[in-house]
Design a protein around this nucleic acid. Structure first.
Lengths: 197, 197
DNA sequence: GCTGTTCCGTACACCACTGTACGGTCTTGT
DNA sequence: ACAAGACCGTACAGTGGTGTACGGAACAGC
């Protein structure tokens, strides 16, 4: 016993910040509480970070990278746009890295630190969707609106899963419902076009 | 000049709390700031309310009433389920009483004070939607999933409107996009049934 | 125009979190 | 083994919020 208690790195703090963010929102990213959870004091923190905002910004940066770019990269190779959309949503809906992060961020959209990152991510995702729907043959403006509608449904689903899992049980761990959702999302733009590529 | 400065009532505080809630979330419902905004001191507040939680609870109660029951009442008379759904969404999407309230609440879903109210509201709305889709002829289980999907899209849309209005401009003041959304929501369960009733 | 109630201001104790200063302790290279 | 740097604890000042006690102003009814 008497484990040596390893010393912390910058990344440890960021990880902790992300979980705190997912659980309790921006205000939960507080130095003192995090320090307690990591079993150190603020002395440690202020060596690794300039300030609390510094930490928050770093965490957001990580999310912006991981939560968007990496996912998009993984489905970009799919040539069939419908399949690309299906794959995208499946990943996005089943692999929420730190569950509840998204909703927590959307929550604090007015936070001066969160807003820029959130805007960039949203814009990027909407663009990606618009392109996919355009590739699928929708006229440009319709593709755009369809992208927004679809993305709304995605956001709402994750939001619902977090806000009321006991009420909307379908949102958590129900493969059939998930399939239904994904098909709804994709079919929205499909209409009466052929589905057998 | 020297306007008499009317004294405040319990409702004044609740209204202020609701706007603060919509703007800055649960943590923005703080006695001192609200007092400043209302141009009084905390002395006033603690006469009308037992505590800060008391205020928050009262505000939530108001929302639960106004944001659900009243809307549902207004469309309950419509016999055609499709029309009922259309009317419901139209009201819900255009008349958000204090805009941004919903998202702010969903945000703090883990808050011990917010959670119960949020659960009740969500359950009630999902039930209403499920009934509507059932009335429309969908098999019960499918009606339920459709309700969840539809409600997700609604939530996401409001969320998007609040989180990134400059990015997803369609979500704010774009009648055409709104129509497209509503039709998407309704048609989700409609499929190939007739629409002309 | 007096009185009792309603409403509000002031002052205080208390708590949680941020940030700084600085001293101390590990750890690594050599 | 011992310096140099990396990492952490302690102590303190500052800020912004909650809640309480109590005194005083404003208003109603009569």
């Amino acid at each position: 016993m008497a484990v040596p208690k390893p010393r912390l790195t910058r990344t440890d703090w960021i990880t902790a910040a992300l979980t705190a963010l997912a659980e309790g929102g921006v205000s939960a990213v507080a130095v003192d509480p995090l320090a307690k959870r990591l079993d150190v004091t603020r002395g440690s923190f202020y060596w690794h970070f300039k300030s609390r905002d510094d930490l928050l910004l770093s965490a957001l940066e990580w999310w912006e990278q991981e939560g968007t770019a990496s996912v998009i990269d993984r489905v970009g190779h799919l040539t069939d746009p419908w399949e690309r959309l299906r794959a995208l949503f499946h990943i996005a809906l089943t692999e929420d890295p730190t569950d509840g992060l998204e909703p927590a961020l959307v929550a604090h959209a007015d936070d001066p630190l969160v807003a820029p990152a959130l805007h960039r991510v949203t814009a990027r995702r909407l663009d990606f969707l618009t392109v996919a729907y355009t590739d699928a043959g929708l006229p440009p403006d319709r593709a755009r609106v369809q992208a927004v509608v679809t993305y709304s449904a995605y956001i709402g689903w994750t939001e619902l899963r977090r806000a009321a899992p006991t009420v909307a049980t379908e949102t958590v761990d129900d493969p059939a419902a998930l399939e239904y959702l994904i098909e709804s999302l994709v079919q929205g733009g499909q209409d009466k076009q052929d589905k057998s590529s």
